[in-house]
Computed example of a mutant assay.
Amino acid sequence: MNNELMFSSKTDLWSTPWNFFEKLNDEFHFTLDPCSTHENAKCYKHFTIEEDGLLQDWGNEVVFCNPPYGRQIKDWVKKAYEESQKDNTTVVMLIPARTDTIYFHEYIYHKAEIRFIKGRLKFGDSKNSAPFPSMVVVFREDNQ
């Protein structure tokens, strides 16, 4: 990833570091990546921008979701919460730790397991850490 782009508002795509993903995958065994490109998909089953994961069914899947971090992130968090209400569906999100947002309070706080990440992640092939803290949000039946 171009470091100049990473620290600007020119992109909202932050490719998940493989080693970070692999640790989560060892725990959850993901079956779906609903917001990826063919090049950075973390699961065999995945949806690209053209397929629009927000419009797809995530039911009966174990989902890894690292959504675009722009204004549409609230839609992805809402979708993750709603999809997790379906039987046999778990959704794990990697998102910025923005606890002051409406979507955090409406869909995450007291409704999901929250894992704050110590330090800052290095997304993609960047040499620099992200300019924001991150968290893993786990939506699953036993959180309800």
Rank of each mutant, 00 (worst) to 15 (best):
27 E>I: 15
28 F>H: 10
28 F>G: 10
28 F>Y: 14
28 F>Q: 07
29 H>K: 15
29 H>I: 00
30 F>K: 11
30 F>A: 10
31 T>I: 08
31 T>V: 07
31 T>Y: 08
31 T>H: 10
32 L>Q: 04
33 D>T: 02
33 D>I: 05
33 D>W: 02
33 D>H: 01
33 D>E: 10
33 D>N: 07
34 P>Y: 01
34 P>T: 02
34 P>R: 03
34 P>D: 09
35 C>K: 06
35 C>A: 15
35 C>I: 10
35 C>D: 02
35 C>R: 04
36 S>R: 04
37 T>N: 02
37 T>S: 15
37 T>A: 00
37 T>K: 03
37 T>Y: 01
38 H>M: 01
39 E>V: 15
39 E>F: 13
40 N>C: 10
40 N>A: 07
41 A>R: 12
41 A>K: 14
41 A>E: 02
41 A>P: 02
42 K>W: 00
42 K>T: 11
42 K>P: 00
43 C>Q: 07
43 C>Y: 01
44 Y>M: 07
44 Y>F: 12
45 K>T: 14
45 K>P: 06
45 K>Q: 13
45 K>D: 12
45 K>A: 12
46 H>M: 09
46 H>V: 06
46 H>Q: 01
47 F>P: 00
47 F>N: 09
47 F>H: 12
48 T>Y: 04
48 T>D: 06
49 I>N: 05
49 I>G: 01
49 I>Y: 09
50 E>N: 13
50 E>D: 14
51 E>Q: 15
51 E>S: 13
51 E>T: 07
52 D>F: 05
52 D>I: 06
52 D>C: 09
53 G>M: 00
53 G>S: 08
54 L>H: 08
55 L>E: 15
56 Q>I: 06
56 Q>F: 01
56 Q>Y: 04
56 Q>H: 03
57 D>H: 03
57 D>L: 05
58 W>T: 08
58 W>K: 08
59 G>R: 09
59 G>H: 08
59 G>C: 10
59 G>W: 00
60 N>Q: 12
61 E>A: 05
61 E>K: 12
62 V>R: 15
62 V>G: 12
63 V>D: 04
63 V>N: 04
63 V>L: 06
64 F>H: 07
64 F>P: 06
64 F>E: 06
65 C>A: 14
65 C>P: 05
65 C>E: 03
66 N>C: 05
67 P>R: 03
67 P>Q: 04
67 P>F: 00
68 P>R: 08
68 P>K: 09
69 Y>T: 00
69 Y>C: 12
69 Y>Q: 03
69 Y>N: 13
69 Y>W: 13
70 G>F: 04
70 G>M: 06
71 R>N: 15
71 R>W: 09
71 R>Y: 08
71 R>C: 06
71 R>S: 15
72 Q>A: 13
72 Q>K: 08
72 Q>P: 03
73 I>E: 07
74 K>T: 12
74 K>L: 11
75 D>P: 00
75 D>G: 01
76 W>K: 09
